[in-house]
Amino acid sequence: MTHRKYKFPSPELRAAFPRTLPILMGYLFLGFAFGVLLGSRGYGALTSFLASTLVYAGSLQFVAVELLGQFNLLQAALVALMVNARHLFYGLSMLELFRGTGRYKPYLIFSLTDETYSLYCAGPVPPGLREDRFLFSLAWLDHLYWIAGSVLGSAASWLIPFETQGIEFVMTALFTVIFLGQWEGAAPRTAARKDRIHAHLPALIGVGVSLVCLPLFGRDAFLLPAMAVILLTLTALRWQQKRKEASHDPDAS
């Protein structure tokens, strides 16, 4: 590792910028939508800036717009935990890569969003560049795009007051697209019907349990019971699978 003086823009930043261009598009667009949505609920650019700077988690921030309709810290904490549970596994696959990133490491961990994670997975650090500075450049560029998009969205909803009724569908569409992507990733369409149903069970459980809990507990209260029942059902499913495997395979220990 060479210890040259940091010059702006560093070769690491120059190499990182082109790789972040798809995220620039995506984050400006989604961040903008977040800002407009937040604005439609009466929150200004400061809230938008703080949320995107401090929370910096796309899906959760969209849910947070709804959570800001009623003051309930426990619900906010549990929703954040469940929505962000996937981060636990991003971190696990980054243990190796982040080793030796020194003083950049805390920020790299803080800023590990889905999109930045995908950039880390996309390709190796170009030869001759410092790995820690390269990863740091990818991370803060993405963060900057997200903040810029959301503040611009807030500003737009304030400067150009347009009829925002229905804008909340941006959130439904985002989650549906992610859901469809996960659905396709769970099982190839060529797989046997039985295997496909099995692979899609978690997604079906999520939708099914929520649809049952919604009328039972009402629109404002169904998230917490739904999350609990989903967790229990998935755990029971695993338990049942293990028993089945054990009974099919007498040699298994």
Partner: peptide, 18 residues
């Protein structure tokens, strides 16, 4: 196991929530 099955289940829940 939770890491594999939780994300699609929670995303399904969020679609219903929306």
């Amino acid at each position: 196991y939770l890491g594999r099955v939780l994300p699609p289940a929670i995303m399904g829940m969020l679609v219903v929530y929306c």
